[in-house]
Amino acid sequence: MRIYVCVKHVPDSAATITIRGNNQIDESVTFLLNPYDEHAVEEGVRLKAQIGASEVVAVTLGKEAAINTLQSVLAMGADRGILIKTNDRPDSIFTARALKAAIEQDGKPDIIFTGKESIDSEGMQTMFRLAAALDMPVATNVVAFSIDREHAFVECEMEAGVRQLLEMPLPCVIGTGKGLNKPKYPTFIDIRKAKQKEIKQIVLASLKIEKPAASMEISELKLAVEQRQPKELKGQPQEIVKELIQVLRDEAKVL
């Protein structure tokens, strides 16, 4: 099987974000593999281990620095990587087209895994656009996964402990959720071996993607204002709780 994993190089959620210009962040912070994509990589690698005779190909779109993220994916067990290189920050409408073009240039996918969302732009949509472009079925927030020769069977977590069980013909796109698996962290040897693996670089422009009619752009990016002024409720426990209830009733008006 040919297993593709689409990943994103994102700022560490623990990083201190500062704004540059009107609509960008200062990128001199630690970047890493998008956490939801870790589950996608892990599932792709597990699937290969289960069925054998497969190749796991990681694809990302980003600046040259995104090679670091591909390296981590290769250390987790993917066989090779593809970087669609650009200094722009295309929206998900364009990104899905680029991923499709790069994947189709590389081979014929039997299944595509990707995280259910990225933790930087939190768009929650690229996998759906990719699936639509490739005319494949898609499931999101997948927390259980299996396949037979022709189908994928998934459980998707909905709200409040409800799951939907879906069946889809292969090839399909799987948006991985947190409960799906526990990614294994690579050993030193894995990391060293990954350095031998191939990373193909494609210049985005060379894919000759037609400009879509629709687009989304960040017109302004600001730091979120932290405007809360913490007040301590002090006293004996009984009194503290009495005060708290007053707050809930008079200020929050929820009682």
Binding site: P11, N23, S215, A224
Partner: peptide
Amino acid sequence: SQFSGKTVATIKVNGN
């Protein structure tokens, strides 16, 4: 919000 709630983005959309 973007970047784990650390920023607020204004997103302009174009299309039909």
